[in-house]
């Protein structure tokens, strides 16, 4: 795990336990995310990556532990303050989660209409630009039901970018995308990070994508319900700390998970 100076730390997870009801999904999670970094949440299917992400974006209160955003304890803040903190978040959901009763343009315009006092023409220009960034300008008047899975995902990303968030959360961004679109998305993620210093938390199984873009990460294990490795996906691939991580990073059949 990279050592970061407190000033450079944007997000911090301390002894976090997440789960549903009394069922623990992951526990003893500790890590920090540097400002401007791309942090990967890795692990096999069902290990709790998405559950941890849900807890980080405010959808699932943790059972224990703290989640700090710029030093502020997110889950211990009052509800209004939590909403204020979350205004810095942009989330791309696994299914894109576009609102089906609105056109793509309206999907992106809605947060701008609700949370800014921009004029209608400025909102329109911003919507066009955000869609342009993801290569979906032509879809501004289309409904989500008229789009393919990949197109929905790109429009979902444009919506996540609507309020210029400081932190972007991606849940399986490349899942279901063709290699070219996937590569374009990787480039866009790198551009957002390099150009604008956006911090990105990414849940993904796409190893080539993770090796290309992520510079730090954590590996969760479903068996022990704990993180078993910290570090960038490239470092974990080159120097795996255990057989499970080695098998995961090299796409091998797990011989002995323990």
């Amino acid at each position: 795990m990279n050592v970061t100076s407190p000033q450079n730390t944007l997000l911090s997870i301390e002894n976090l336990t997440v789960g549903y009801g009394e069922r623990i999904i992951q526990q003893d999670i500790n890590f920090t995310v540097k400002k401007g970094s791309i942090f990967a949440l890795m692990g096999g299917s069902g290990c709790g990556k998405s559950t941890l992400l849900k807890s980080m974006i405010g959808l699932l209160p943790p059972q224990n532990g703290d989640f700090l955003v710029k030093g502020e304890n997110y889950w211990k803040a009052n509800k209004n303050h939590r909403v204020e903190i979350a205004r810095n978040f942009g989330v791309l959901f696994q299914s894109a989660a576009l609102w089906s009763s609105m056109t793509v343009g309206e999907n992106i315009a809605l947060p701008l209409q609700l949370f800014t006092n921009l004029s209608a023409s400025m909102i329109q220009r911003l919507v066009e630009m955000k869609l342009g960034l993801v290569g979906m300008s032509h879809a501004i008047n289309l409904y989500p039901s008229e789009l393919s899975g990949g197109m929905k995902k790109r429009c979902g990303l444009a919506r996540a970018l609507a309020l210029d968030p400081e932190i972007l959360f991606f849940d399986e961004p490349s899942a279901g995308l063709d290699p070219i679109t996937s590569k374009r998305l990787d480039d866009l993620i790198l551009n957002l990070r390099d150009g604008l210093g956006t911090t990105i938390i990414i849940v993904s199984h796409e190893l080539p994508s993770l090796f290309t873009i992520a510079d730090d990460g954590i590996f969760l294990d479903a068996e022990t319900k704990r993180p078993i490795a910290h570090g960038s996906p490239r470092a974990l691939r080159d120097n795996p700390p255990c057989a499970l991580v080695n098998d995961f990073m090299h796409r091998q059949t797990v011989q002995n998970p323990k």
Binding site: G132, G135, H138, D187
Partner: peptide, 11 residues
Amino acid sequence: GLLNDKKPEPT
């Protein structure tokens, strides 16, 4: 650089 040279006509 990511944006098209010419704004495409929306459908």
